[in-house]
Design a protein around this nucleic acid. Structure first.
Lengths: 337, 337
DNA sequence: CTGAAAGCGCTAACAC
DNA sequence: GTGTTAGCGCTTTCAG
C-alpha cells in the first residue's frame, strides 16, 4: 500500500538503518547515499511523521490556544507563531476557545495527548487561576494575558502604560469627562482598566468605567444608552471614551453612526489595535498599536529558550505599544466653542 | 517518565488490551471498566496520539492550505473548518503560502508526511495547473479557487454572477465609465473579471480592467495614478471602480482619501467581502457578501462525503454572494448636476 | 469477555 | 560505514 522505509531499503539494496541515516544525518558513503536517494525518488517515498514522532519521542508540535482566530490581534499573532514554527521545522495546532473555560480544558487535554513540545496560550481569567494545578508536562508561554503568579513565561503589552497614555492624550486634547469601556473576560482588560483608573485620578478626573462582554454588540448597546441621553439636556454624557480592544472600538463607532452623531464632535474615541481599517473610519481612529508580530515571535523565542533551559527562572516580556494619533481625538477647542 | 497504557494496565491488574478497549469501544465488563477508569484517573494517563495514529493508520488530521490567514476571507473560512474538524474529532494543520508556489509544494509534501485524512486547499493558478500530477493519495477539496479540470471537489462563489451583479448595480445607479481592478494570482480574480467583462459588454459599456498583485498597496498605487489625472481636464477618469477582493478595496479607499477626494463623489466603489469595517468607512461600502462560514463548512462536508465514497464523481458546490448596497454606490444624479 | 502477541514505520544502540 | 535488532505506545487479531 503506502511505501515505507523498508521498501526503499529493499529497492536500494541496503538496510533500513542506512535509509534512515540518509534521511536524517548519519554517516553514509556517497555511493550508498546516491542509491538511496534514487530509490526514494523512484518509489515516491515520504517519511511517516507519526512513526517518527513516536519513536523519537518528540512531537515537533506546538499548540496555540486563543479565544478566536477572527480577532485580528490573534490572527496576526498566529501568523507570526506559525512562521516561526515552520521555520524551526515544527507544526502548530490552533484551537479556538471562544473564551469558554470548558473548551480550554478540553484543548489542554488535547495538547497532552499530542505530546506537544510547548504551548502558547491566551487563557481566560478563570482558567489562568487554575492553570497551576493543571499538571501540564510541557512548557507554556502565556500571551496577551498573564497574571501575577509568575509560574509561566509570558509576553504581554504594557497595558497600564498604554491605557494611561491614551488617557493622557485625551486629557491633553482638552477632554475631561473620559469614560472607559473594557472587556470582562481577560486580565488584559483588567490591566488596561488599572492604567485608565490611575491616569484619571492622576489628572484629577473622575473615572467612569464600564465592563462589557468583549464583543462589538455589547459595546454598541452600552454606548447607545449614553447617546440616547443626548435628548436630555440635563444629562451629563462622556465627552470621550477609551476602549480596551478593537471589537469594542468597532461597536462604539457603529453606535455613534447609528445615532447620526459624529466623531469626535459628539464623542471622541481612542482604543487599541491599529487595524488597517482604523485609519479609514471617519477622521481616523486614535489607537495604541500593538507589536503583534513581535508578540508572536517573542512567544516562540521564550518557548525555545525554555526548552533549552527548563529550570531557569520565569520571564515576562513586556512590550510597549505605540500611540497612533488620528482625528478621532482632535483637540476639543478645534470644534467646540 | 510519561505514563503509558502499560502502567495503567499494571495498576488496574488487567492487560493492556483491556485498557485499550475501555479507552476505545470494546466489550468490557463493568467491573474491569471501573478498575481501569480508576487507574486512568490515578495515574493521570493520557493516550499518545502519535502511537494511536501509527497503529490505526489514520491520522484524524486534515490539512488547510491558504495564502494568508490574515486575509479576512480565509480567517473566517479557517474558523469554520476548524469548528467542523474538532467536532468530528479531527485536528487541522494550517499553512500559509503567501501565494508562493514553492511553499505550496513544500506544504503538499508535509501533508503527505502527516498522512492527512484530507486537504482543503486554495491554490495559486500555477499550482492548480500542476495539481493533477502531484500524486496526492488523499482527497482534496479546493476552496475559493477551482478551475475547469473537474479533478477535485470544490466549493466556490459564483464569481461571474457576483461581479456581473456589481456592474449591473453600478450601471443602474447611472455610472458608465466603470473600471475593474483584479488580483493577478488566483482563478477567482479571473472569473470575476469574466463576469465584469461580460456584464460591461452586455450593457454596451467599454471594459477597462487592470490586474495587480492582490494587496492593498498595489491597488492604492494603481488608483493614485488615475486620481493624479484629475488635474488634467482633458483626461477621462473612471466614474466608478469595482475591485475583486477586500485588500484591493482597502487600497482604493486609501488612495481616494490620500488625494482628499470623496466616495462616491469623485469615485464610486464596489467590491467583495462584507468585512465589519466596510459599513463604517465613509458612506459605507457596497460589497458582495460571501457566505464565508458556509464555504468552510461545505468544504468539510465534501471532504467527509468523499472519504465515504471515494469513487463518486467530483462535485463543485457553487454558492451565491449577496449584494450589500451602501453609500459608496449612491445614484450618480444624487450628487452630480 | 479477557489476555497474549504481532506489528504500524521509524530511530538508535550495538555490533561488525 | 553499514547492518541487525529492539522497541516507541498503541490497536487488533486470535485463542481461550
Amino acid at each position: 500500500m503506502t511505501v515505507s522505509i523498508k521498501d526503499v531499503a529493499q529497492k536500494a539494496g541496503v538496510s533500513v538503518a542506512t535509509v534512515s541515516r540518509v534521511l536524517g544525518s548519519g554517516p553514509v558513503s556517497d555511493a550508498l547515499r546516491a542509491r538511496v536517494e534514487e530509490a526514494v525518488a523512484a518509489t515516491g517515498y515520504r517519511p511517516n511523521l507519526s512513526a517518527r514522532r513516536l519513536r523519537s519521542q518528540h512531537s515537533q508540535t506546538i499548540g496555540l490556544i486563543v479565544s478566536d482566530i477572527r480577532n485580528p490581534f490573534f490572527t496576526a499573532v498566529s501568523r507570526a507563531v506559525e512562521d516561526a514554527a515552520f521555520q524551526a521545522g515544527m507544526r502548530v495546532i490552533l484551537c479556538n476557545t471562544d473564551e469558554n473555560p470548558d473548551r480550554e480544558a478540553m484543548y489542554l487535554r488535547l495538547m497532552q495527548e499530542e505530546r506537544v513540545t510547548g504551548l502558547i496560550f491566551a487563557p481566560t481569567r478563570a482558567t489562568l487561576a487554575r492553570l497551576d494545578r493543571a499538571g501540564l508536562d510541557f512548557p507554556v508561554v502565556l500571551i496577551d494575558r498573564s497574571g501575577p503568579s509568575g509560574l509561566y513565561d509570558s509576553v504581554v503589552l504594557d497595558n497600564q502604560q498604554a491605557a494611561a497614555a491614551l488617557v493622557g492624550h485625551l486629557h491633553a486634547q482638552g477632554y475631561r469627562r473620559i469614560a472607559g469601556l473594557f472587556g470582562n473576560t481577560s486580565t488584559t482588560a483588567v490591566e488596561r482598566h488599572g492604567g485608565y483608573h490611575a491616569a484619571m485620578v492622576a489628572h484629577g478626573l473622575t473615572p467612569d468605567a464600564r465592563f462589557v462582554p468583549p464583543y462589538a454588540d455589547a459595546a454598541e448597546a452600552e454606548v447607545a444608552g449614553w447617546l440616547a441621553d443626548i435628548q436630555n439636556p440635563g444629562a451629563v454624557r462622556p465627552e470621550a471614551v477609551m476602549v480596551s480592544n478593537s471589537l469594542l472600538l468597532m461597536g462604539v463607532v457603529k453606535a455613534v453612526r447609528k445615532h447620526g452623531l459624529s466623531i469626535p464632535g459628539d464623542l471622541a474615541l481612542a482604543g487599541f489595535d491599529n487595524e488597517a481599517w482604523t485609519e479609514l473610519v471617519g477622521p481616523g481612529l486614535t489607537v495604541i498599536e500593538q507589536p503583534v508580530h513581535e508578540i508572536g515571535a517573542a512567544a516562540m523565542n521564550l518557548l525555545f529558550e525554555r526548552l533549552e533551559a527548563p529550570d531557569r527562572p520565569t520571564r515576562k516580556v513586556v512590550l510597549s505599544g505605540t500611540c497612533v494619533v488620528r482625528g478621532s481625538t482632535a483637540p476639543l477647542e478645534t470644534f467646540r466653542v
